[in-house]
Amino acid sequence: MAFIVHNWGLNVGNVEIAGITSSSVFLIGDNEQIRLNSYFDTPAESLIIGPFVPLGSSVSGDTAASVVETDEDE
């Protein structure tokens, strides 16, 4: 298989970001490989404020189903 990319041009205006946390990256440039891992453990009753979005709790059932599949594969 041949994977060919044409980067004709990239022009960006203004970028505003509140926070980049827990093994995240904001990159302006080219890259070959990125691997980001994070474990986060907090008491169940604690108040969570911030960008930690619980996975698999989206409105549609599709996301929940795909999460279960991933677990079975491992």
Binding site: S23, G29, D30, N31, E32, I34
Partner: peptide
């Protein structure tokens, strides 16, 4: 540009 990035965090 960045070649390889491998980041880990445990909180």
């Amino acid at each position: 540009s960045l070649g390889i990035l491998e980041a880990e965090s445990r909180v």
